[in-house]
Design a protein around this nucleic acid. Structure first.
Lengths: 347, 347
DNA sequence: GATTTTTACTCAAACGTTTCAGTAAATAAA
DNA sequence: TTTATTTACTGAAACGTTTGAGTAAAAATC
């Protein structure tokens, strides 16, 4: 007989018990002024006693504010994303916002569905790292057109879009990795890129190109690959690269999964890393520190990215509460965050 | 001038335009019978034209149903969890439910806050993998008492609680790892456990004990450690173990992070794995396959766990829609899912 | 043609909260 | 004492949807 009989526990119930109006209860719960101290404590006591919990739907419906931010991300299992998300969540909590995390599984269809779902629950803002294949961003229009601010990060629109954009300095990352290998004397550097419809891979490659130009080293077509960055594709690339001599003296992969597979392949065919072949990855996946030899890679400082995102979002949301703001009055930020090279044993 | 002037797009607006009642629009949107085919298509066309999207808050408020499931998990970055979550999300989508993913960061306080938030948004159910430190589960009472079903997995209540429980077969996992090492001839087996207030570590250790008993091998106190399973703690344990001879001939760690650190430590002090020391981990973290030598570990088949969770949840939610169900009528499942040993190069 | 049944729709209340406008009482100012 | 001001509260509408009850028209039955 533990269960209490049919608890309803709305603001009305508390009002009825205390012979007050629901309006007063609401005032107490929202810390409005002009409510007697005695009344306030009576109400709070009763709230505690009956275990009242605000119904977010009713409240959100009335106020048109949910204090909730939606996040869409390709896969939460990717280390960089996991770290960014964790930071975002913590920072948002500090500002009184909740975070709804959604995974698109790198599927555009799902991404579309998720934007709709988030719009349906009228989140106050959306943070999105898009699918590898998202080139058309119009499914975010529902949000932007209805004044729900959107912030893109990591994989962001390449064409102008009315939203803030925050991303690691991929150009510099590409440059750092390339320059590092060139400094070490490598000249036949193979580059494993992701598809070039995606902002981050464009920039990383451009940075790499700059480094190569600085060292007057041509980029060879047969040493460059543009695939989705899976282990399987990396293996294919390696197989091609080591089918006949001259072998490359370095591999620069645009993510660590590919770099790790390259390393694995090199071991299999007894190519000594770093002596005969140097390898640089991208992202500082936890595996890159643990593999033998450990992998030189580009660190993106994900926690920093998360912080920058929330800072930017808060600017937007605070502004929102003020005067009427349209796309015209609200500038859209475009922020690039620092990256760095972590040198380990593979170079 | 792209922006349309002050779109409101409620069901009323559509009704007004088409000179129908909001009720009819609602009927169309919910596929109710008794609405004329012509009307239906007129409405659908207009819904499309003005870009109407249902307001989930209004709908949820009225129906007391959100088609949303909340998930609380210590950290999304843990591989097993990431995999389970992904499966859960996909399966739930197939059933027309959305998933809200929340991270407790292994903090009880945050876990409490999250249960409240999920209750506030009146999710239809909650799936939870608790904090390492959660021994009191009363913060889930708000949910269970208000007929929001809760399913625990991974780290689950050890004392009876009115909720379904789904977990990997930790006892068998502990047994498999122990027996494997014993079969290989190891007799001085060090065991690195997590704190014993947590269900999974109790069971894993019990399974290990059983194996040791079968081989008439005593468990030595100075070879057994109960700490939070961090790399730092694993290192401390290893330092103690290799402070003086006789050295252990095997390490069985209750998670892969610890096992990986043990492996790392062994390399540092030039103890040959697997010749002088065999190591078994738990969880099949992606790193365990990639490290040298690769790590023997216990696979938990996370995708399977995810599937079982959703299957169980659907049973509960379908039942809910039927007759009035109390804790008495709804049995609480307690399901254990299979595990397996993956032998690699560390044993 | 009168009656019943079915179909297609509308009305209005309800979900639980917030908030504007209003009021009664208490206090301050005249 | 009268008037103005402040304080503490209440009433009722509103947010956008769903749904039971009701109704008018059309179709089926007698």
């Amino acid at each position: 007989m533990k269960k209490k009989p049919a608890r309803k526990n709305s603001i009305h119930d508390i009002a009825r018990i205390l012979r007050l109006s629901p309006a007063t209860i609401s005032r107490v719960l929202n810390n409005h002024p002009h409510v007697h101290a005695a009344t306030r404590s009576k109400v709070m006591a009763m709230v505690e006693e009956v275990g009242y919990k605000r119904n977010a739907m009713a409240s959100g419906l009335r106020t048109n504010k949910t204090n909730t931010v939606g996040l869409i991300v390709p896969r939460i299992s990717m280390f960089v994303h996991a770290e960014i998300i964790t930071t975002i969540q913590n920072e948002l909590h500090a500002h009184g916002y909740n975070l709804i995390i959604c995974q698109s599984n790198d599927s555009i269809e799902l991404e579309k569905k998720l934007t709709n779902t988030l719009y349906a629950s009228r989140v106050d803002a959306v943070i999105a790292a898009c699918t590898l294949f998202t080139t058309d961003f119009s499914h975010f229009d529902t949000l932007t057109e209805n004044d729900i601010p959107v912030i893109f990060y990591d994989r962001v629109p390449v064409t102008p879009y009315p939203a803030s954009i925050i991303k690691g300095d991929d150009f510099r990352g590409g440059y750092l990795g390339g320059a590092h290998l060139l400094e070490l004397g490598c000249r036949r550097i193979a580059y494993i890129s992701g598809p070039l419809n995606c902002s981050i891979y464009i920039d990383r490659f451009a940075g790499f190109e700059k480094a190569m130009r600085q060292y007057n080293t041509p980029i060879l077509n047969n040493l460059t690959f543009y695939h989705e960055l899976s282990a399987a594709n990396a293996r294919k690339a390696m197989t091609r690269l080591f089918a006949r001599k001259p072998y490359p003296d370095a591999i620069f992969a645009a993510n660590d999964v590919s770099a790790l597979e390259a390393l694995h392949f090199a071991k299999e065919i007894n190519v000594q890393v770093p002596v005969e072949l140097k390898i640089v990855g991208y992202s500082n996946d936890p595996r890159s520190a643990i593999v033998t030899p450990s992998l030189t890679t580009i660190e993106q400082f994900p926690a920093n990215i998360g912080r920058v995102i929330v800072t930017e979002l808060m600017k937007i949301l605070k502004k929102d509460t003020g005067a009427n703001n349209t796309a015209a009055t609200t500038g859209f930020a475009q922020i690039t965050t620092a990256v760095g090279l972590i040198r380990r044993m593979s170079t």
